[in-house]
């Protein structure tokens, strides 16, 4: 029962039927997504295989330096993805976002891997790297959503923010609503995931563990840790990034720097 059924290359290629369905849908209904679907499918194939080989190598070497190098590559890649989605030129948000991601993701992974799961060493790659992957994947989207929302609202509501400033509000008081709405928008997907988990969907990690023969009750415990970790790390990272970037939306005289596009 605990023996996992391997997927052969022909069987794997059979999964491309789903990509063909997506391609046909795009073609028939002129969605213009054919190129993106092809690139996405190829990248999924290449990136996951590459990651598989890297993980196999790292798990074999048990090297702290290599583990940290993988961590650095993951955060840098996440930052590039965030930067690609948030096209903001007037506020320098990249460096503070990157540094916050680096510190909070590391702290979260150490806490989960070293303290909750209790691996030895704390950076045991088999636990440390997948934990990071899940944290970064979720939190990165939340940060991108929150940043986009904050920059947009700061422009749309500039007159209201300035009205509050003119009435004696400091920049935090004047932009309080913009800040709250941005952080909330970023957090909602993680919170919705907690609401739906086990009812609407079975998360990837839990499914993977069950498929590989792990006792479902053990898989559930891991999944609960993961869900809580995702909400907590998303909240922490989003709030720190938003606090720093919000300050950068204002000049030394607490004047709004973002001008209409």
């Amino acid at each position: 029962m605990n023996q996992i059924i391997d997927i052969s290359i022909p069987q794997l290629l059979l999964a491309f039927v789903f990509i063909l369905i997506a391609q046909a849908s795009s073609f028939i209904y002129h969605l213009g997504l054919n190129r993106d679907i092809s690139v996405g499918a190829l990248r999924t194939f290449a990136q996951l295989f590459l990651m598989g080989y890297v993980l196999t190598f790292i798990l074999g070497t048990q090297s702290l330096l290599l583990t940290l190098a993988v961590f650095a590559v993951m955060v840098v890649s996440a930052m590039f993805i965030v930067r690609g989605r948030v096209k903001e030129k007037q506020v320098a948000y990249v460096l503070p976002t990157f540094l916050t991601m680096l510190v909070t993701y590391f702290a979260t992974a150490v806490f989960v891997s070293g303290f909750i799961v209790g691996t030895t060493p704390w950076w045991e790659p088999r636990y440390f790297i997948p934990t990071l992957g899940m944290v970064i994947g979720n939190s990165m989207s939340a940060i991108a959503i929150a940043l986009e929302r904050m920059f947009r609202d700061m422009r749309v509501q500039r007159d209201v923010v300035e009205m509050k400033l003119a009435l004696g509000a400091n920049y935090r008081e004047a932009s309080d609503e913009v800040f709250r709405n941005a952080v909330t928008a970023g957090m909602i997907p993680s919170i919705n995931a907690m609401m739906g988990v086990g009812l609407v969907f079975i998360p990837g990690m839990m499914s993977g563990q069950i498929l590989s023969g792990t006792d479902p009750l053990v898989a559930i415990r891991y999944q609960i840790v993961v869900m809580f970790m995702l909400v907590g790390s998303t909240a922490l990272t989003s709030i720190i990034v938003m606090l720093i970037v919000r300050k950068r939306c204002f000049g030394s005289g607490e004047e709004v720097l973002l001008t209409p596009r």
Binding site: L165, A166, L167, G168, A169, N170, Y171, E173, E254, E255
Partner: peptide, 8 residues
């Protein structure tokens, strides 16, 4: 002067 104080 602190901006908020000035604007008050």
């Amino acid at each position: 002067t602190a901006p908020a104080v000035l604007r008050s």
